[in-house]
């Protein structure tokens, strides 16, 4: 469904992604693992178009989207949940959802605010609360819900567990599993191997802007050496 091929991205003169390649199949949940600064977030931003890659290919449903404007990429059915949440602080929960709303896509049950409140019951209880006055966990749920309002077919989830209390992380894992149950394709960026192990089917490990390991989650669990080399802190 999504193919990234030999992607290079620069910030100014710093070469961040150095030939990044990965694939996400339909209804797959793939996790992008790697330490801080490995290029996970930049990969996400390059795919959604917030950062313009210098070279390489990004194909979504076989169509080249590299270099397209973010709103066009989003309208193709790619959802992006940023790492720092970026909830609209002055807008209420309902208004935040409204901003994310896009027309329904054929073949999918469209997301509505009510359906999302079933997924994240906390949000349903604070519909009129401004985003700026919510806890980190609530904001994380809101930012995911907001992206789902666009009825994406593939979601880029950038470190949803970051900085959250263990209880909330668990809720988050449940929510992601529920989305997986709906058949949603997900590319997840994570540092938390335990969290990733609970939700992902397959993993791609990145280091210094390159893929250094790729395989199924089960293979990663078996490959002690790779885990120590690439992921141990």
């Amino acid at each position: 469904m999504l193919q990234v091929e030999a992607l290079n991205t620069h910030y100014g003169r710093a070469h961040i992604l150095q030939g990044m390649s990965l694939q996400v199949g339909s209804s797959e949940v793939r996790v992008l693992l790697g330490r801080n600064g490995a290029g996970k977030s930049t990969t996400m931003k390059s795919i959604i178009g917030l950062v313009r890659p210098t070279s390489g290919h990004i194909r979504f449903d076989g169509q080249e989207i590299a270099g397209e404007e973010p709103h066009r990429i989003a309208r193709r059915g790619l959802g992006y949940v940023p790492e720092d949440r970026r909830v609209f602080a002055d807008l209420t929960v309902m208004e935040n959802l409204e901003v994310g709303k896009q027309p329904a896509r054929g073949g999918m049950r469209p997301w509505t605010a009510e359906r999302l409140f079933e997924l994240f019951p906390n949000l349903g209880r604070m519909r009129d609360r401004p985003g700026g006055r919510m806890s980190g966990g609530e904001q994380q749920m809101l930012t995911i819900a907001r992206t789902l309002m666009g009825n994406p077919r593939l979601v880029l989830l950038d470190e949803p567990s970051e900085g959250l209390a263990p209880v909330i992380v668990e809720q988050m894992a449940k929510a992601i599993l529920a989305l997986k149950g709906e058949g949603l394709t997900i590319l997840l960026a994570e540092q938390n191997l335990h969290f990733a192990g609970g939700v992902a089917d397959s993993a791609t490990v990145v280091e210094k802007g390159r893929v250094v390991w790729s395989g199924t989650m089960a293979e990663l669990r078996a490959d002690e050496a790779a885990r120590t080399q690439y992921l141990a802190v």
Binding site: H71, A74, Y80, F88, V99, Q102
Partner: peptide, 11 residues
């Protein structure tokens, strides 16, 4: 508040 995010949401 955040133009970039609005764009990433398809606006």
């Amino acid at each position: 508040l955040d133009r970039e995010m609005v764009a990433a949401l398809g606006v």
